[in-house]
């Protein structure tokens, strides 16, 4: 099953739409609550990341009986130093973003902690593609 969501640059007020929709679907499938929580938290983080740093993007959700795969593909600045970005507390978020309660430098590490598979493709000046998978079994 395939589903897509559009991410709009700077639109923090709509952050969480995709994760809520995913959550509803997984509840209907009777997926373990802890697993639902993991993917929802990870998607929410990635959604906020794309809103904060990129110029917009798309969330692709692919679901089958064994797993859920979510890809967040954005058009944006890309991540120059991926290792650094994976460090807890490291943030390049602007003061404006921080003021809104985002940008604490927990995004990528938090995503990594919550998913079974994480794959990041990034190119400076082009954009970033984050693919995450949570297995149900």
């Amino acid at each position: 099953m395939h589903n897509e969501f559009v991410v709009v640059e700077g639109d923090f007020s709509n952050a969480g739409k995709a994760s809520s929709e995913i959550k509803k679907t997984l509840k209907q499938l009777n997926i373990d609550n802890q697993k639902i929580k993991k993917i929802v938290v990870a998607v929410y983080e990635a959604e906020v990341n794309a809103i904060a740093h990129a110029y917009g993007g798309t969330i692709f959700v692919d679901l089958d009986q064994e797993k859920i795969a979510v890809t967040i593909k954005d058009v944006g600045p890309g991540i120059p130093d991926l290792d650094k970005a994976m460090t807890v507390g490291f943030s390049t978020a602007s003061a404006k973003v921080r003021e809104m309660g985002f940008g604490a430098g927990m995004g990528l590490p938090n995503i990594k902690n919550n998913v079974d598979e994480l794959e990041i493709k990034t190119e400076v000046g082009v954009g970033t593609e984050i693919k995450m998978v949570v297995n149900f079994l």
Binding site: M1, K24, K27, Q28, L29, N30, I31, N33, D64, Q65
Partner: peptide, 20 residues
């Protein structure tokens, strides 16, 4: 205990069919 009204079926393959 939870008693979810949202679950389409306890069997994930049946639930998945229903969801589709």
């Amino acid at each position: 205990l939870p008693r979810s009204m949202m679950v389409l079926d306890d069997d994930i393959s049946v639930a998945f069919q229903k969801l589709t």
